[in-house]
Amino acid sequence: MSPIPRDARSVGDDPATGSLERAAALLDAFDAAHRELGLAKLVERSGLPRSTVHRTASRMVQLGWLDKPGDRYRIGNRLFELSGLVPVRHELREAVLPYLQDLYAAARTTVQLGVLDSARVLVVEKITGHRPMPMLSQVGGVVPAHCSGLGRVILAWSDEETIEAVVASGLSRRTPRTITSPEVLRRELVAIHERGWAYEREEGNLGVSCVAGPIFDFTGKVAAALSVTGPTAVVHPDRVGPAVRMASAAATRAYSTRRWAAPRPQLELPS
C-alpha cells in the first residue's frame, strides 16, 4: 500500500516549491515494507515526475540521505547518524533503556517503548531477544493508538483534545476484537487510568496481547509508554501487570530527572 500522499501538486516541478518538499516526498516513500525501491517504484510511491525523482534522488545520494547499491535506492547512513541526536531517541531512549532491559529479563518476551505521534504510536525502541515477532512494527514504525497497549495507556493520561483527535481520525478495525466505538474506548481509558496500566488483547494482531505502562516527564505529563507484548498464552495481565507498573515507575523517575536511578529494583513476575 502506498504511503499517505502529500499534495502532489505541491511537490512537483513548480519552482515555487522547495527541494526540501521533494526530498521529503521521496523519504516518505520508504517504510518497513519498502526498505529498497527502484526508480519506477520510487516514482509511483512519491507521486513525483520521473525526472524530478531521478534528479532529487541523485542529489540525496551525494548528501548521504539515500544510498544506491546497484539499481535500488534505500535510506542512507547519514540519516541514521543524525537520528541519534533526536531528543526522543537521545534523551528518552537512553534514560529508559535499562528498565526495558530489566523488563525483558523478567518477562522473556518482546518489550517496546513508544511515543504518541498524532493518532499513532511511534516505536522508539524494541527488544525481542531470540523470539522475534515479525507482525509487530520495527523501531521507527508506527501502530494505531486506539488499538495498541502503548497508545491506550498514553491516551489514558492525555487531555480531551488529544483523545478527540485520535477518535476523529477513525477507529479502524484491525481484528474482530478491536474496539471501534468511541464510547467503549473512553470507558476503557478510564479503567486504565484507575488500574495504572493497559491490557490490550488481540486487538492489533490476532494471537498477540500487550500490557503497557505510562512514562511521565518532569512536569507530570505523560510522555511515552513501555510494554510487554507477546503471544496471548504468555502475556497474562495478572502476572505481567505488576512488573510493567514497576518498570514504568522506575523509567519515569529516570526520565523525569534526566539521571540514572541507582540501584534499580529487580523485576520479578509472580509465579
Results as ranks from 00 to 15, higher is better:
25 A>Q: 05
164 E>A: 08
211 V>W: 01
236 H>D: 13
19 S>W: 13
20 L>Y: 09
106 A>L: 01
79 L>P: 00
268 E>C: 01
223 A>P: 03
161 E>S: 14
214 P>R: 11
97 L>Q: 13
267 L>R: 08
170 G>N: 09
258 R>E: 09
201 R>G: 02
271 S>P: 06
100 L>H: 05
69 P>M: 10
124 V>I: 15
187 R>W: 00
186 R>M: 09
170 G>I: 04
255 Y>M: 10
139 V>G: 04
190 V>S: 08
136 L>F: 02
52 T>G: 07
200 E>S: 12
261 A>N: 07
61 V>Q: 04
69 P>V: 12
29 A>N: 05
125 E>A: 15
63 L>K: 10
101 Q>C: 06
96 V>K: 08
44 E>R: 09
112 Q>C: 11
115 V>F: 02
188 E>C: 07
85 L>E: 14
231 P>R: 10
93 R>H: 09
135 M>P: 06
207 G>T: 04
7 D>V: 08
140 G>H: 04
245 R>E: 14
198 A>M: 04
169 S>A: 14
175 T>I: 02
60 M>L: 15
206 L>E: 15
101 Q>M: 08
250 A>Y: 00
173 R>C: 09
262 A>W: 11
175 T>D: 03
135 M>T: 11
159 D>P: 06
265 P>H: 04
224 A>M: 03
4 I>K: 15
226 L>E: 00
11 V>F: 10
204 G>T: 01
13 D>L: 12
181 S>N: 12
255 Y>G: 06
63 L>C: 12
110 T>G: 04
48 L>E: 12
11 V>Y: 11
120 R>V: 02
250 A>G: 06
43 V>K: 12
245 R>P: 05
28 D>V: 03
246 M>P: 03
88 V>E: 15
28 D>S: 14
18 G>A: 10
266 Q>I: 15
262 A>D: 14
36 E>R: 15
68 K>T: 11
131 R>H: 11
63 L>H: 10
14 D>V: 07
33 A>M: 09
262 A>Q: 12
43 V>L: 05
215 I>H: 07
